[in-house]
Amino acid sequence: MNDMKANCREAEEILRMFDRKIKKSLKNTNYQEQEDLEQEIKLKIIEKIFTVKFSDPPSFWCFFKLSNINKT
């Protein structure tokens, strides 16, 4: 339940953040379709936020060669 709420808030935030980008991408289609496209994009984003699971990120430390530092 809490997760759901967090997702909703996140979706709102993301839609606000990407508003300009969405508006810009509308130019990819002709004028009559733009309103429809805007709605479709927003729906898609919301859908993806709720469904897509991002793969587990790597650990921060695996990027660094730490052994040398620890020795000193």
Partner: peptide
Amino acid sequence: IHFFSIDYD
């Protein structure tokens, strides 16, 4: 957003 708009068109 980028690819969806192109596909939609």
